[in-house]
């Protein structure tokens, strides 16, 4: 997460990763959301795998970077390189496909294990336009989401339903998490040095300096 003051107001930058089996409609979902909102200033406006969106929520600017992932089983192992440093994850399943819901559960387990509770999770049942073929019950999905501290949403990329709400809600939650973290940091800033204990050590080397600290061109 990066929050920086720019032009007086605060700008939040969040990274959101999209996970879910192939064919559940991850890409259509995010394309719907970012439709006609391609950022021309980007070096290259590439396609639908990486998208950005700028929002203004209660006077605060939010920059979203949305990372799509390949959902096929053979790419599963690459998950960690995509979700590292994410503030939020959108886990998509197809309501007509029980198996895709199972995959979401696997992702939830993995994310909680690797990233803990700091990541905001959204479980999304997509394709509600096909409700007559539904194979994952609303109750089951919602109670599962609640049990793992995630929020559940129903969307239809085809009908453009529920998508705006999903992202807005996620942004608000990520902002809350970021603010809580800041407060913690604010309180703890003066203590961070004093927290350095345990087996403490005498260093015989100069401290490593942050990479590119002095000359970063900007």
């Amino acid at each position: 997460m990066a929050a920086s003051g720019a032009g007086g107001g605060k700008t939040y930058s969040f990274k959101v990763v999209l996970l879910g089996e192939g064919c559940v409609g991850k890409t259509s979902l995010v394309l719907r959301y970012c439709e006609n909102k391609f950022n021309d200033k980007h070096i290259t406006t590439l396609q639908a795998s990486f998208l950005t969106k700028k929002l203004n929520i209660t006077g605060k600017r939010v920059n979203l970077a949305i990372w799509d992932t390949a959902g096929q089983e053979r790419f599963h192992a690459l998950g960690p390189i995509y979700y590292r440093d994410s503030n939020g994850a959108i886990l998509v399943y197809d309501i007509t496909d029980e198996d895709s819901f199972q995959k979401v559960k696997n992702w939830v387990k993995e994310l909680r294990k690797m990233l803990g509770n700091e990541i905001c999770l959204c479980i999304v049942g997509n394709k509600i336009d096909l409700d007559k073929d539904r194979h994952v019950s609303v109750e089951e999905a919602e109670s599962y989401a609640e049990s793992v501290g995630a929020k559940h949403y129903h969307t239809s990329a085809k009908l453009n339903k529920g998508i705006e709400e999903l992202f807005l809600d996620l942004c608000k939650r990520m902002m809350e998490t970021a603010q809580a973290e800041e407060r913690l940091k604010g309180n703890g800033a003066s203590q961070s040095a004093s927290n350095r204990r345990g087996v403490q050590i005498v260093d015989d080397e100069p401290q490593a300096t942050p990479a590119g600290g002095c000359c970063s061109s900007g």
Partner: peptide, 10 residues
């Protein structure tokens, strides 16, 4: 059509 990671990464 536009492609997401499902198609692009492979």
């Amino acid at each position: 059509r536009l492609f997401g990671a499902d198609d692009f990464l492979p």
